[in-house]
Design a binder for these strands. Structure first.
Length: 904
DNA sequence: GCGAGGACGTA
DNA sequence: CGTACGTCCTCGCT
C-alpha cells in the first residue's frame, strides 16, 4: 500500500481559493489589514482565518486548494460576457493570491490550477474521484463562496458556504439545499440556469425568481422537461421563459462543472502533512499575522486528546496526632492546597483541608474539632512563608482560615489569578474548567465520582479503608491545583505576566482579605431615617404622577411607560431599543424640555428617589452584626485589571447629587478610630495618557501644576489661560475624559449638546494641539491589531480578537476597548501597587490605621487616634510614588467623621 | 425560579 | 455612535 493511501475515516477538505479570497477581500476593510510596509493582507487574512477555523472544526485528513488560472476559460470562449461585469481584479487583490500560495506552501497544503478552467471544475473533478468506491475517502467537504458548487452536494459531500463576511459557515447538506432552494442539489444548476447568476453576468429569465423556477422544475421533473413543455406554461412568466430559452440553455451549459479534468494530483495526494513550522513563522512574521499564528498553533494543540481517567494518588486521611509528621515529611516542597468550607462578607469557616505534593502524596484533614497540638502544627505550617503553597482563588480560603485564627503565608501561586492574567476576559476561572484546558484532565464531579466505592483506588496507601468521597475529591482538587500552578506558570511567563502575578496580584490577596475582614462602619440610624425620608418622597412623586395622567401605573415598567408617553400622551418617539423606545433619563429630560409635561417631572423625580431608597435598603440588608459592611472585592472580573466590589457594591455609592451624597454620610468612622480618610488621584487616566503618548504639551500641562482642564482648553482655543471661559473648559474637560474611551465626534456632540460638525471641529483642533495623543491612540490600535492584545505599562495584557472581525460593529467596539484598556489598566495596576505600598508602610511604621475601600482611583482609610498627620504623609508618599511617570502623580487627601465629610 | 432587557449608580 | 463594572426592577418564560 502506498504511504499516502487514504485510510478509512478519511475526510477530504477542498477549498475554492479564488472565491474565498475574493469574498475576504470585500468583507474586510483594507485599511485595517495592511503591513507596516504597506502590503495589503485583507484577502490573505480572511482566507487563512477561514482555513484555520475549518481545519480546527472539521479535522479533515486530506486538504487541497483549487485556484482559477486566468479569466480565459472555456466559458469565456463560449460566451464573451461571462463574468464580464466583474471589474478587473484590483492589483491589491491579485497580489495577495501569491501570498496565499506561499502560506499554503508553508502549511504543506497542495494547491491545483488548470489552464482554461476554473477552481470549481478542479473541485468537481476531485469530488468525483473521491466519491468513487476505491478512493478510500469517506466524506468530502467543500469550502467555497461560489454557489455553482452546490451541485456537488450529496450524502457524502457537503458544501460549507460563508454566510456573512468570513466567520459564519452554512453547512449545505442535501437537505439544506432542498430546504433553501426548493430543489435537490443536482438540480441546483437547473434552477440557477432559469434564475440567472448576476455575479457571473449570466442573465436568466426576466420575472422568474427562485420560487417559480423551483416550482417548474419540480412540476415537470427537471429543466429538460420544463423546456420541452415551455408552451404549457401560461401567463407573462411562461411567455418570458419561451423568449429566453436560449439564455437558459446557455446558462445551463456554462454552470455545469467539468468532472473529468486531467489533474496532476488526486485525492490521495492531498493527505495532510506536518507544517513547515519555520516557514510559517517567517511568513506570518512578514505578514504581521500574530493573531492568526496563535490561532493556528492553538488549533494544533486542541487536537490533543483529553487524557482518560485519573491517576494514582497516595492519599491519607490524617487522624489525631498525624499532622505534624505529614507536614514534616513534605518539608519545603510545594504543596497544592484545597480548602473545604465557606466564606464571604469578610469571614468564613473551614471544614477540612486537602494537600498534595508532586511526588503523588496527598492528605486530607478534617479541621472541625482539631486538637491543640495538631492545630498548632497546621497553624505553623500555614503561616510559614518558607513553606510554599499554591491555592486556587486563595482569598476566600484565606478568610476562612483567618476566621479560625490561622494566617496564610508562602502562597507562591494562585491558579485562578494566574489564569486571569493569562486571559483576563473570561467570565469564570472554575478549577474544573482550567484543569481541563491546561491539564487535559477531567475534574468534574461525575468523573471523580460521588460514592466512596468509586474512589478506592485513590487510597492506595494507608487510610484507604477509611476513604471518603469528600476527602478524595478534595485531594484530587489539591493535586489539580498543584499541577495547574506549574502549567500556568509557563503560560504566565509566556505572556509576560510573571512580575504582575508575584509582585502585585499575589500580595494583594492579603490586603484585600484584610479590607474585607475589617469592613466599613455604617450609621444605621442615619441610613434608616434617610430611607424613610426617600420612601415618603417616592410616595409623593408617584401620587403626583398618577394625578397628572389620571390613573395608577407601574412607574418602574418601561413597557407601561411607553404606552402612556407615546400612545396616550402622544409625545415624540425617543431612540429605539430592542423592545421599543427608550425611557431613560436623558430621553425623558429631552422630552420634558420639549413638552414641559408635568408627568415627566414627577416620573424623573420618582426614578431618582426610588433608586436612592433602594440603594439604602440594599446597604442596610448587608450590615453585619459588628455594625459594619463587609464588601467582597473581586480581583478577577474586570478585563482591564480593575477590582470590582459586590455584596454590596461599595464602588458605586452616589456622589454626584446633593441627595445622593447624604448616603455617604451613613458611612462613618468606627469605634476606636478617629476619622475616615479618603485619598484619590487627580486625572490619573489623563496623566497615564500623557506618559504613554509622550506628548510634550500635555506633559508640560501637568508639570505646570495648574488647573489641567483649563490649561488644555487654553491650548486648544489658543487663548491666554485667564481667558478660558467655563464653557471652553467644560468642552475640553468632556474631551479629556472621553478620549480614553474612544469617543466619537457624534458622542461628544451628544454629550455637549452641540452639532456633530462642531464636535468634529473641536476634536480636530484638539488633536492639532496635542498631536502626540493622536499618534499614540492610532498606534495602540495598530499595534494591538498586529499582536492581538493591548498592554499596560506593567505588562498586563488584554486580548482583543475582534480587532480583525469582519463585523464592523464588533470591530469598532474592539477598537474602543483597545484604546481604553492600556489606560484604564495602567491606572488599575498603579493603584494596586499603591495599596501594597500603603499597607506595607502601615505595618513598617507600626500604625494602627487601616485600609477599608478602594474605588478605582481612591482609597478610603480608617484613621487611628493620633495618626492623622502621619497617615496623610504616608498615603501621599506611597500613592505618589507608586509609579515613575514623566508627569507627577497628584494625590488629594481629606478626612472627616464620615465618607461624605472626608471628601474634598 | 430564571434570564433577558432596561435603567442607572460609580470611576 | 463612550470604557469598566454591579444591582435593581419588570416581564415572559419554564
Amino acid at each position: 500500500m502506498p504511504e499516502n493511501a487514504p485510510q478509512p475515516g478519511s475526510r477530504l477538505l477542498l477549498l475554492d481559493g479564488h472565491s474565498l479570497a475574493y469574498r475576504a477581500f470585500f468583507a474586510l476593510p483594507v485599511e485595517n489589514f495592511s503591513t507596516t510596509t504597506g502590503q495589503h493582507t485583507n484577502a490573505v487574512f480572511g482566507f487563512v482565518s477561514m482555513l484555520i477555523n475549518v481545519l480546527r472544526d472539521e479535522q479533515p485528513t486530506h486538504v487541497g486548494v483549487a485556484f482559477d488560472v486566468s479569466r480565459q476559460t472555456f466559458r469565456a470562449e463560449e460566451y464573451a460576457e461571462y463574468k464580464a461585469n466583474r471589474s478587473a481584479s484590483p492589483s491589491e487583490f491579485s497580489g495577495q493570491l501569491s501570498l496565499i500560495e506561499e502560506v499554503l506552501d508553508a502549511l504543506r497544503i497542495p494547491f491545483l490550477k488548470k489552464e482554461g478552467f476554473e477552481a470549481d471544475d478542479i473541485i468537481a473533478t476531485l469530488v468525483t474521484q473521491a466519491l468513487r468506491e476505491d478512493s478510500g475517502i469517506d466524506e468530502v467537504l467543500i469550502l467555497t463562496g461560489d454557489r455553482d458548487s452546490l451541485q456537488l452536494v450529496s450524502e457524502r459531500s457537503t458544501v460549507l458556504y460563508p454566510m456573512r463576511g468570513v466567520s459564519d459557515l452554512a453547512r449545505m447538506t442535501p437537505e439544506a439545499v432542498q430546504e433553501k432552494y426548493g430543489v435537490p442539489p443536482q438540480r441546483y444548476p437547473e434552477l440557477a440556469a432559469l434564475v440567472g447568476e448576476t455575479s457571473d453576468n449570466l442573465p436568466g429569465v426576466p420575472g422568474v425568481g427562485q420560487g417559480y423556477a423551483a416550482k417548474w422544475i419540480n412540476q415537470f421533473d427537471g429543466l429538460d422537461n420544463v423546456i420541452t413543455h415551455a408552451d404549457q406554461i401560461g401567463g407573462k412568466k411562461g411567455e418570458s421563459l419561451r423568449e429566453h430559452l436560449g439564455d437558459v440553455l446557455r446558462n445551463r451549459r456554462l454552470n455545469a462543472l467539468v468532472t473529468d479534468l486531467q489533474l496532476e494530483l488526486g485525492p490521495a495526494d492531498l493527505l495532510k502533512q506536518p507544517w513547515d513550522r519555520q516557514r510559517v513563522h517567517t511568513l506570518f512574521d512578514s505578514l504581521e499575522f500574530q493573531v492568526l499564528r496563535t490561532r493556528l498553533f492553538d488549533s494544533l494543540e486542541s487536537q490533543e486528546e483529553v487524557e482518560e481517567g485519573g491517576f494514582e494518588l497516595d492519599g491519607a486521611l490524617l487522624g489525631e496526632g498525624e499532622v505534624a509528621a505529614w507536614l514534616a515529611e513534605v518539608g519545603e516542597a510545594v504543596v497544592g492546597v484545597h480548602v473545604r468550607g465557606e466564606w464571604g462578607a469578610g469571614t468564613g469557616r473551614v471544614e477540612g483541608l486537602a494537600m498534595a505534593t508532586a511526588d503523588g502524596r496527598a492528605a486530607y484533614l478534617d479541621t472541625t474539632g482539631l486538637g491543640g497540638e495538631d492545630d498548632a502544627a497546621l497553624a505553623a505550617w500555614l503561616a510559614d512563608p518558607a513553606r510554599p503553597k499554591v491555592l486556587h482563588d486563595a482569598k476566600g480560603p484565606a478568610l476562612a482560615l483567618a476566621a479560625h485564627g490561622w494566617s496564610l503565608a508562602g502562597v507562591t501561586s494562585d491558579t485562578a489569578l494566574a489564569a486571569y492574567l493569562v486571559r483576563p476576559d473570561q467570565r469564570s476561572y472554575d478549577l474544573a474548567d482550567l484543569t481541563l484546558r491546561y491539564l487535559k484532565r477531567e475534574l468534574r464531579q461525575e468523573a471523580v465520582g460521588e460514592e466512596p466505592g468509586e474512589q478506592g483506588e485513590l487510597f492506595a496507601g494507608e487510610g484507604a479503608e477509611a476513604g471518603h468521597a469528600v476527602a478524595a475529591t478534595a485531594m484530587l482538587h489539591a493535586r489539580a491545583v498543584l499541577d495547574l500552578a506549574e502549567a500556568l506558570a509557563e503560560a504566565v511567563e509566556e505572556t509576560g505576566g510573571q512580575e504582575l502575578l508575584t509582585q502585585v496580584e499575589l500580595p494583594l490577596i492579603g490586603v484585600l482579605r484584610g479590607m474585607e475582614e475589617v469592613g466599613i462602619a455604617v450609621d444605621a440610624d442615619h441610613l434608616g431615617a434617610l430611607e424613610a425620608h426617600f420612601a415618603t418622597e417616592v410616595g409623593a412623586a408617584a401620587e403626583a404622577a398618577y394625578a397628572v395622567i389620571g390613573k395608577e401605573i407601574n412607574l418602574g415598567s418601561p413597557k407601561q411607560l411607553q404606552v402612556v408617553l407615546f400612545d396616550e400622551l402622544g409625545m415624540p418617539k425617543t431612540k429605539r431599543t430592542k423592545t421599543g423606545y427608550t425611557t431613560d433619563a436623558d430621553a425623558l429630560t429631552a422630552l420634558l424640555a420639549k413638552t414641559g409635561h408635568p408627568f415627566l417631572e414627577h416620573l424623573l423625580r420618582h426614578r431618582d428617589v426610588i433608586r436612592l431608597r433602594q440603594t439604602i435598603e440594599g446597604l442596610l440588608k448587608t450590615v453585619a452584626p459588628d455594625g459594619r459592611i463587609h464588601t467582597t472585592f473581586n480581583q478577577m472580573i474586570a478585563a482591564t485589571g480593575r477590582l470590582s466590589s459586590t455584596d454590596p457594591n461599595l464602588q458605586n455609592i452616589p456622589i454626584r447629587t446633593e441627595e445622593g451624597r447624604r448616603i455617604r454620610e451613613g458611612f462613618v468612622v468606627g469605634s476606636g478610630f478617629e476619622s475616615l480618610m479618603t485619598a484619590d488621584y487627580s486625572q490619573i487616566e489623563m496623566r497615564i495618557m500623557a506618559h504613554l503618548s509622550e506628548d510634550a504639551l500635555l506633559i508640560e500641562a501637568f508639570r505646570s501644576g495648574s488647573d489641567f482642564h483649563s490649561i488644555t482648553a487654553a491650548r486648544v482655543f489658543d487663548v491666554p489661560a485667564a481667558e478660558v471661559t467655563l464653557e471652553m473648559r467644560a468642552k475640553i474637560k468632556a474631551m479629556n475624559y472621553g478620549l480614553a474611551y474612544g469617543l466619537s465626534a457624534f458622542g461628544l456632540g451628544q454629550q455637549l449638546g452641540i452639532e456633530p460638525a462642531e464636535a468634529r471641529g473641536l476634536m480636530e483642533e484638539y488633536f492639532e494641539t496635542f498631536g502626540g495623543i493622536r499618534d499614540y491612540l492610532d498606534g495602540i490600535v495598530d499595534v494591538a491589531r498586529r499582536s492581538g492584545y493591548t498592554e499596560t505599562i506593567r505588562g498586563r495584557r488584554r486580548y482583543l480578537p475582534d480587532l480583525v472581525s469582519d463585523n464592523r460593529q464588533r470591530r469598532e467596539m474592539a477598537q474602543r476597548m483597545a484604546l481604553n484598556a492600556p489606560i484604564q489598566g495602567s491606572a488599575a495596576d498603579l493603584i494596586k501597587i499603591a495599596m501594597l505600598r500603603v499597607d506595607e508602610q502601615l505595618r513598617t511604621q507600626g500604625l494602627t490605621s487601616r485600609l477599608l475601600l478602594q474605588v478605582h482611583d481612591e482609597l478610603v482609610l480608617e484613621v487611628a487616634p493620633g495618626e492623622r498627620e502621619a497617615l496623610e504623609e504616608l498615603v501621599r508618599t506611597e500613592m505618589a510614588g507608586a509609579a515613575d511617570l514623566t508627569v507627577p502623580l497628584d494625590v488629594s487627601v481629606g478626612t472627616g467623621a464620615s465618607w461624605h465629610e472626608a471628601a474634598h
